[in-house]
Amino acid sequence: MAVTQRVCIVGLEEHEVSEIQSALEFGIGIVAHQALPQIVVRDGKLLVASRQKPGLVEVTRVVFHGIYEDDLEFLAALALWGGSCLPSPRGMMDLRLRLPGLVRALEHTRFGLPLRGYASPKAEFHTEAERVAKWGNWHCGKNKERFEGVWQSDEPCIVEDFIPGQSVRIVLIGDKYWQIKLEGDSWLKSIHAPNAKFMEIDRELLADTQNIAKAFGLELVANDYIVTDRGTKHLLEVNHVPNVSRFPEIWAAYRDYAIDWINRSVISVI
């Protein structure tokens, strides 16, 4: 008896899952979870909690699109499994934590200057220049503060020079790409601001983002940069799970990429 593939989708909203499901080849099953599901990796197989019945069911592919407080071990388990996952779980795992991920990304960017600093919890960081402290592992402008003089935090911090300029994001999904001007009411800029918008692509930033995506084996990624008035460019962050719902064009590209990726995987297992 032939059994078609079953795909686990983690992190997407129900209406987003429905859009993907409606375009899948006949016979492909879906197990969808907005939160991290229970999983077991056993003998090279991935078993995921079913939503229709008690217990776990085997899945043959995973589409992962979410950021959770405790997801690092989950990503590591997907990498340990070694099956087909969109995006690469190893790439997501390597970039998930802010400081280690940044250190790894700096090896692959042309725009890594100026040098970053670091401060342990309760350690005093003294500076005459204006700096930015970043702590924790959340993006979207959270856990950041500008300072000068003396900085002390309860958390370990990355410390960067404050660089005035235009904040932009390069988004890659497969062979499609966009540049977005990030906006905000303060020095903190975000893709979520209502006036954030597409802008002409900077080919140097695009090539840099493509190089980083290739280095981590990621099919989709979003890099944030600062471009100064003098035209110098500086990498700020690499988003291993970029927002795909803010702009309809990006959602359509992500949806179509995921659908094609799943449909190309259809094989029958006897």
Score class of each variant (00 low, 15 high):
A222D: 05
L102V: 02
R6C: 06
R246Y: 11
R116S: 11
V41Y: 07
L95C: 02
A129R: 12
P100S: 04
H108S: 09
E204Y: 03
D154P: 03
A129C: 09
L56F: 14
D208F: 15
V103I: 10
R230S: 12
A129N: 12
T4P: 13
L47A: 08
F216H: 08
G217V: 00
A35T: 13
K53H: 14
R146D: 05
S50H: 02
V266W: 08
L47K: 11
G149N: 08
T232E: 08
E14S: 15
Q166F: 07
V3G: 05
R90T: 14
F74C: 04
E155Y: 15
E219Q: 15
T127W: 03
I173D: 05
S18I: 07
V238T: 05
V7H: 02
V48G: 07
L80R: 00
D161Y: 00
G136T: 06
D175F: 07
G101A: 02
N239A: 09
A133F: 09
L99H: 10
P194Q: 05
I267S: 14
V103M: 02
F74G: 10
L56H: 14
G141Q: 01
K233V: 02
V241K: 02
V40G: 06
Y257F: 14
G91V: 00
G174E: 07
L36S: 07
G91R: 00
L115D: 10
I212T: 02
L99R: 12
G141C: 01
R6P: 03
S245L: 08
G101K: 06
D94E: 13
R230G: 09
H15W: 12
G149K: 09
D229C: 02
D202F: 11
K142F: 11
E124G: 04
P194G: 01
P121R: 01
E148I: 13
D185V: 06
A193D: 14
L102Q: 05
V48I: 15
R169H: 03
I173A: 12
E128G: 14
D43V: 01
I259N: 04
W81D: 00
V3L: 08
K189F: 02
A207C: 04
Y177N: 13
V40P: 01
E219T: 15
V62K: 03
R255E: 14
K45R: 15
I267H: 14
P54H: 10
R51N: 15
Q38D: 15
R61N: 00
R96L: 10
Y225F: 14
E124Y: 09
L78V: 11
D94Y: 06
R98T: 12
D70L: 07
G136Q: 03
Q152E: 12
D260K: 10
V227H: 05
F26T: 12
V41C: 12
R255M: 05
K53P: 00
N143R: 13
I180V: 15
V62T: 05
V40C: 13
Y68W: 07
P156E: 09
I270W: 05
D256K: 07
L78A: 01
Y254L: 08
L188A: 09
